[in-house]
Computed example of a mutant assay.
Amino acid sequence: MKKAYLFVSILMIVGIVIIGASAYKSFYYDKKQETTKNINFYLKEHNYERQVQKKEIRRDSKTAEYFAKVTFKDEPNNEYEIHQTGSNPFEVVGYKDGVQIADKKVGKYITSD
């Protein structure tokens, strides 16, 4: 009886671990990889790849969305956030000294609506 109880308990723990790992992969890892691939494609499509000095993929805890923080070689004092706003369109927001840039003359990589 004890062996059967121990076997069932171990089987349940293994099942919970497998389900947890699968959920993590599908909710976080796959989404991050897809967003990274799409942002890399955006940078390549606009010929920005060679200008990238630093790129970091981050997750916004409020919206649970991933975005890229990018610094370009020709504008090292500006920091840009590239957000995927749907299935393919991207929004690029620029910041200089922590203040959002609204003028394309100051931040040439921003997208303005």
Rank of each mutant, 00 (worst) to 15 (best):
I18G: 04
S22Y: 00
I19D: 11
V8F: 03
Q84D: 00
E75Q: 12
E34T: 03
R58K: 13
D60L: 11
A64I: 07
G94I: 03
A68H: 05
Y95L: 12
G15R: 08
V8Q: 01
M12V: 00
I19N: 04
D30Q: 11
I82P: 02
K44F: 05
Q53V: 11
F90E: 05
L11P: 05
R59L: 12
Q53Y: 15
A68K: 02
H83K: 06
Y42E: 08
M12P: 00
V8M: 01
V14R: 01
Y24P: 06
Y29H: 13
K3H: 05
G15E: 10
K96M: 04
Y28D: 15
T36Q: 14
F27V: 09
S9H: 05
K3A: 05
T85Y: 15
R59T: 09
S61M: 08
V17N: 05
K73Q: 12
I16L: 15
F27N: 12
K3W: 08
G94Q: 02
L11W: 10
E81T: 10
N47Q: 11
K55G: 03
T63I: 09
V92A: 05
R59I: 05
I82V: 13
Q53P: 13
Y66W: 10
D30W: 10
I10A: 12
N47L: 11
A64V: 11
Y48E: 02
K62F: 07
K62W: 08
Q33G: 04
R58E: 03
E91N: 15
I19F: 11
K3G: 14
L11S: 13
N88P: 03
F7D: 02
S22T: 00
F27P: 02
T36L: 13
D60A: 11
L6Y: 04
E79D: 13
G86N: 06
I16G: 07
S22F: 00
D60V: 08
A4C: 04
K54S: 08
M12H: 02
S9I: 02
F41Q: 15
L43A: 04
I82D: 03
V14T: 10
P89S: 00
R50T: 07
V52F: 02
E91L: 14
G94A: 02
H83F: 13
I39V: 04
E81F: 13
T36K: 08
K3E: 12
Y29T: 13
A23P: 02
D30I: 06
R58Y: 14
E45D: 14
K73T: 09
Y66I: 09
L43I: 04
R59E: 09
Q84R: 06
E91Y: 09
K73N: 14
V92L: 08
V8C: 01
L6V: 01
K96A: 01
D74A: 14
S26W: 06
Y95Q: 04
L11M: 14
I82L: 10
K37H: 08
V93K: 08
L11F: 09
N38K: 06
K69A: 12
T85C: 12
